[in-house]
Amino acid sequence: MKKTVLALAALVSFGASAANIDVTATDNTSFDIGGTIAPTCKVDNFIGDRGDLDLSESVRQNTASVSIWCNTGQATAKTTYSSLNNGFMEDANGNQIGYLVTVDGLFNDVDLTQDRSGNQLAGSGLNGGQQSRTVRITPQVTGFEYAGVYSDTISVTVAPN
């Protein structure tokens, strides 16, 4: 009996909403649909086989390739490079080695003691076509550094222009 009452209540409820059509309604109608896609950019990197820097000399070394895609259709995106250790590679004992960063087409031989920003080329399109730029690091070594494993983390963030 409970199931029959519920089914009848559902049928009455459905029929009541369908019975409220206006007598002036015609044989066709239309309504607008749509939505918004917010402007966004995406960034990725490829390290390849150059994750380890040669710290025996102060020369530019390819370290990564940074790729950017944006859905704005603009040719560039605001790109910011920052360092976890304020522009220094550090070892477990706190010893530091400074370095300079070059990003093809963006900046040459800058330190990351502060964040560095600029308009870097960005890809677009429905297939995710990106623009990639090589990042080169120049360790600032003299040959008198303490032995150890030195590292830093460089973060890259992007935003639409």
Rank of each mutant, 00 (worst) to 15 (best):
N93H: 11
M89S: 02
C41F: 01
T40N: 13
N86A: 13
I154L: 08
D54L: 05
S124Y: 03
A64F: 05
V149T: 13
A64V: 01
V101F: 14
I97A: 01
T142H: 01
G118S: 10
T72D: 09
G51P: 02
D49I: 12
N28M: 08
Y81A: 03
V23Q: 14
N161S: 12
F46M: 15
A9C: 12
S83T: 05
W69K: 00
V66P: 02
L121W: 14
Q140F: 06
G34D: 02
S82V: 08
I97P: 00
A92F: 15
S132T: 06
T153I: 14
P139D: 08
G148W: 00
E57T: 08
T134I: 13
Q140V: 02
A25Q: 11
T79L: 07
R136H: 14
A92H: 11
F144P: 09
I47N: 06
N93I: 00
T29Q: 09
F46L: 12
E145I: 06
S151G: 08
N62V: 03
N71P: 01
V141E: 05
T36F: 11
D115C: 04
L126C: 08
N85K: 07
Y150S: 06
Q96C: 06
K3A: 10
A18C: 13
S13T: 14
G118R: 08
T102F: 13
S67K: 11
D32Q: 15
M89Y: 05
A18D: 11
L8S: 10
R60H: 14
V158S: 00
S155H: 12
T36W: 09
S151M: 13
R60Y: 12
N45D: 12
E145P: 04
S13Y: 09
L121Q: 13
Q61A: 03
W69D: 05
D49P: 08
I97Y: 05
N45C: 13
I47A: 04
T29P: 06
A147I: 09
A9Q: 12
I33N: 09
V66S: 03
D104Y: 02
S132N: 10
A147H: 15
G125D: 01
L8T: 12
N85I: 03
Y99W: 04
P160H: 03
V59T: 07
G123H: 02
A159L: 07
R136M: 10
G15D: 08
G123C: 08
I37F: 04
G73Q: 01
F107W: 05
N93K: 15
T157F: 09
R133M: 11
L121R: 15
W69S: 00
S132P: 00
D104P: 07
D44Y: 12
L112I: 04
T36Y: 07
T142M: 10
D54S: 10
M1H: 13
V66R: 06
S82Y: 08
R116W: 02
N127Y: 12
A38K: 12
V149I: 11
A10M: 05
S132W: 15
P139H: 07
Y99C: 15
S56A: 04
T138D: 03
L112Y: 01
S56H: 02
D152K: 04
D104W: 03
P160I: 00
Q130I: 10
T142K: 07
N45L: 15
A9W: 05
